[in-house]
Design a binder for these strands. Structure first.
Length: 811
RNA sequence: GCCGAGGUGGUGGAAUUGGUAGACACGCCGGACUUAAAAUCCGGUUGGGGUUAUUCUCAGUGCGGGUUCAAGUCCCGCCCUCGGUACCA
């Protein structure tokens, strides 16, 4: 018997698969049975792969191999999301050009995943920073611009005044300081490019019904879009001294039926009211210094809602339109300018934030909701909205005594008649800010004329490449501003005084269309031909982390709908089925990170146990979507399992027949088929282990049974299965064989061991036919001494019998 | 804060979706083989109690309540951990 050592065959088969192009994407016709299986393409981090990264790739690889065996045409590509912040930060530190460090990282990354035996078709590899790819990223920007979906406006960025640079949120510490120098980060306004994703808000919600995604992910997107039906209401603002009307303050509220309880108003620090009506505000200096203070807080800080702060605007008052009462107006940073109109009517009796604020500043609290069962605080959104009929109206003049179930409509009609309110829908979703004041991203294809007006770059000059003459030291401007060659090319093309846009595109833009490119990666004329997109897409299985629940997945859906509307494709959702992989933690249960020194390199594991052990262990360790710690100790168990398989191959005998073995293999095929379809790889592997434990106790193994077993493990352990397939005297390659079928009848057991309960407690078990009658079951149960002990002479009061599952006797 | 997910033996996890809780592994304990060790193989392994014993019994799936013949699974209220929170990707 030869000793099990994966080193004896893994390289051999890798080379042969490559030489024979076993995993080449087949050509496809519309209507063919196809499977486009895709991983979220990775950012090629400079620190290389750890064993957590390939978990998702292993799942897609298993499914790809399985679908090929099922006769489907499979597209299974891989590429790199190669623009991004880390390479640029590295460049600032070391002055190594990001292109150089990125190409190096990609090389390392590829060599690591190639060792794992993933069946990607590398002929279709793509990279975001490849000029051939950038060309189409820029082309898509121009399409958006021409379709009126791209526009410029002022928006705040994190700004470090000491380093003179824009910071990513990640670079701002929890206390609002710069991660590099520790100085206080402020919010600074800059003119930036946006995409009108909000135009698609309703479709992005309703089309979720069409796709097979985890419910939590769909819900995440719905909540992110945050559609709410409510009303715009206008409050007059008057001068406190003269009572003269100065302006109107518009608010958005979903709880317009609590307006009688509005005892003050709050505007966001960025609200125009302050600037426009400076002369009326008697404490304008104090107000302005509060506004300055609030610029130091990040948006997350402000929403965190820890300690409420604000300042009363003296000199003006608002008038509640329903009762004419004068109410004070505050500036407070718990109101966000981004949502609604940046101003609220505060109803402290029924909104927790307003309640807290009112208590802090001693403001009037007027309840307008009377409850059946009295609580201290009745939250409008939590209680009244859920059960409007349980609550009735108080302190609201003519509406008093009515139920909240009916009052909403009545109030609205009256308010509309009086012309200070109208129904409207608001979304939390905001337009997508795509400008980045960075170097290592795709240049925005916009040029400015000498007067500073933006124009789309001419399509014939795409791609606009990143220049090499770059200083990465922060200057307070986007790095591209000081590249001479970059602007010179613009002057040559458009005339003297023309300048290029110096901001680059958000890397989410690159990742919003790469899945189209994979269908036709070498196309020089189009981002991908309609024909290849419509044949291969939508993606049949998309795998990536749950951290992409909103941003990436929402942007990708937005682009798809845009292309659909522009007539490029005949589908409008990119990913038909989506699943998330869980994170693999280090053995100390922390995140694997260079910083903690707890990463595990897949190459080292492959060196010790071979690629199949690593693959099968990652599939076996836990449910695919759950976060779980790595354990090299447990991994050894899989190595033993493979060794056991290896040893069994010696016992294969063509002439040996066994009904039991036949039954076992049918059951195994059924279980593994179902488990791959439901992404339950861990239980599939457990079943294979059970099968091997079973045959290891057999004297001999039927050859056909054994060969079907090899086919079953082929998607999981491509190396050992190829070797055993070959040893068994079969032709190359096991990965071109058909998936074995099973006969349902062979998988059904005629009799089962069934629990018997007395009064709901298990007191014994009986071996019984699955379809046995109740009388039969009772008779068998009573034959058990322990059951007899409990039943005795008592007459059963009630009997619950579910054939094959449970017998419960109530005495 | 808000949104989402999750808590089951010493460990990773299983449980046909309301029907015998702990499959499959790891670890540990005992045994075989060996001069010895490694590897391998065999047996045991939720906790407490009783029994020479196949066995019996009580408790048990984060905590507190509830529904049901029956709850890890469903309902209500908590606690804790993790992910996202729009410039990490």
């Amino acid at each position: 018997m030869s000793k099990f050592d994966p080193k004896n065959y893994e390289n051999k088969w890798s080379e042969k698969w490559e030489a024979e192009s076993v995993y080449k994407t087949p050509s496809i016709e519309k209507g063919d049975d196809k499977a486009y299986i895709l991983d979220m393409y990775p950012y090629p981090s400079g620190s290389g792969l750890h064993v957590g990264h390939p978990r998702g790739y292993l799942a897609t690889d298993v499914v790809s191999r399985f679908e090929r065996m099922n006769g489907k045409k499979v597209l299974y590509p891989m590429g790199f999301d190669s623009f991004g912040l880390p390479a640029e930060n590295y460049a600032i530190k070391t002055n190594v050009h990001p292109e150089e460090s990125t190409n190096k990282a990609i090389k390392m990354f590829k060599s690591q995943i190639e060792n794992i035996g993933l069946s990607y078709d590398w002929d279709r590899e793509l990279m975001s920073h490849d000029p051939e790819y950038m060309k189409w990223t820029q082309w898509i920007f121009l399409k958006m611009y021409k379709a009126g979906k791209a526009y410029q406006k002022e928006a705040p960025v994190n700004w470090c005044p000491t380093d003179n640079t824009v910071l990513a949120n990640e670079q701002v510490e929890a206390d609002g300081t710069c991660e590099r120098c520790g100085s206080e980060v402020i919010q600074k306004n800059m003119k930036q490019w946006f995409f009108k994703i909000t135009d698609y808000a309703d479709r992005l919600i309703s089309d979720l019904d069409k796709i097979d995604w985890p419910e939590s992910t769909k819900l995440g997107q719905k909540n992110w879009i945050g559609k709410s039906e409510g009303a715009k209401m206008r409050f007059k603002v008057v001068s406190s001294s003269s009572d003269k009307e100065i302006t109107e303050l518009e608010v958005f509220t979903t709880a317009f039926d609590t307006v009688y309880g509005a005892t003050f108003m709050v505007i966001a620090p960025e609200h125009d009211l302050i600037n426009i009506n400076k002369s009326e505000i008697t404490n304008i200096d104090d107000v302005n210094s509060y506004v300055e203070e609030s610029k130091k807080k990040t948006e997350l800080d402000r929403r965190q809602n820890k300690e409420k702060s604000g300042i009363k605007i003296e000199g003006i008052e608002a008038i509640n339109p329903v009762n004419g009462k004068k109410i004070p107006v505050f500036v407070a940073d718990y109101v966000l300018v981004e949502y609604g109109s940046g101003a609220i009517m505060a109803v402290p009796a029924h909104d927790e934030r307003d309640f807290e604020f009112a208590n802090k500043y001693n403001l009037e609290i007027v309840p307008v909701v009377e409850a059946e069962d009295i609580k201290d605080f009745i939250s409008y959104s939590a209680d009244v909205k859920k059960n409007p009929s349980k609550y009735s109206v108080i302190n609201s003049e003519s509406f008093n005594g009515k139920s909240y179930k009916v009052v909403r409509e009545e109030m609205m009609q009256e308010f509309e008649k009086k012309d200070f309110a109208e129904r409207t829908t608001e979304y939390k979703l905001r337009d997508w800010l795509v400008s980045r004041q960075r170097f290592w991203g795709c240049p925005i294809p916009i040029v400015y004329d000498p007067e500073g007006n933006p124009h789309p770059a001419s399509e014939d000059e795409l791609p606009i490449r990143l220049p090499m003459d770059i200083d990465f030291k922060p200057t307070g401007e986007s790095p591209l501003r000081y590249s001479e060659s970059f602007h010179k090319s613009a002057e040559e093309k458009y005339g003297k005084g023309w300048r290029r846009e110096v901001d680059t595109l958000d890397t989410f833009m690159d990742s919003s269309w790469y899945f189209f490119r994979f269908t036709d990666v070498k196309n020089k004329e189009e981002f991908a031909s309609a024909e290849s997109m419509n044949k291969w897409m939508p993606v049949d299985l998309y795998i990536g982390g749950a951290e992409h629940t909103v941003l990436h997945l929402m942007y990708a859906r937005f682009f798809t709908k845009f292309f659909f509307d522009e007539g490029y494709i005949d589908f409008d959702e990119p990913f038909q089925k989506l699943r998330h992989q869980g994170m693999i933690l280090a053995e100390d249960s922390r995140k694997m990170s260079k910083r903690w020194g707890n990463t595990i390199d897949p190459n080292e594991e492959i060196e010790k146990y071979g690629a199949d052990t690593l693959r099968i262990y990652e599939m076996f360790m836990a449910p695919f979507n759950s976060t779980t710690p790595w354990s090299t100790e447990t991994e050894v168990g899989v190595f033993r399992f493979l060794g056991k398989i290896w040893d069994q191959s010696e016992k294969v005998d063509e002439s040996f027949e066994s009904d039991e073995q036949e039954k076992m293999i049918h059951k195994l095929i059924k279980k593994v088929t179902e488990d791959i379809n439901s992404m339950s790889f861990n239980t599939a592997v457990a079943k294979m282990m059970e099968f091997v434990n079973f045959v290891s106790k057999e004297e001999k193994i039927n050859k056909s049974v054994w060969e079907r077993f090899i086919l079953v493990i082929a998607p999981f352990g491509p190396f050992i299965s190829e070797e055993l397939w070959n040893k068994s005297g079969n032709e190359f390659s096991v990965h071109k064989q058909s998936w074995p079928s099973f006969d349902e009848a062979m998988t059904i057991e005629s009799s089962v061991e069934m629990g018997v309960q007395i009064n709901g407690k298990v007191r014994g078990s009986i071996q019984i036919a699955v379809d046995a009658t109740e009388e039969n079951a009772i008779e068998l149960a009573l034959a058990e001494a322990n059951i007899q002990k409990y039943v005795g002479d008592n007459k059963p009061k009630k009997i619950i019998y579910i054939p094959g599952k449970i017998l419960n006797i109530i005495v």
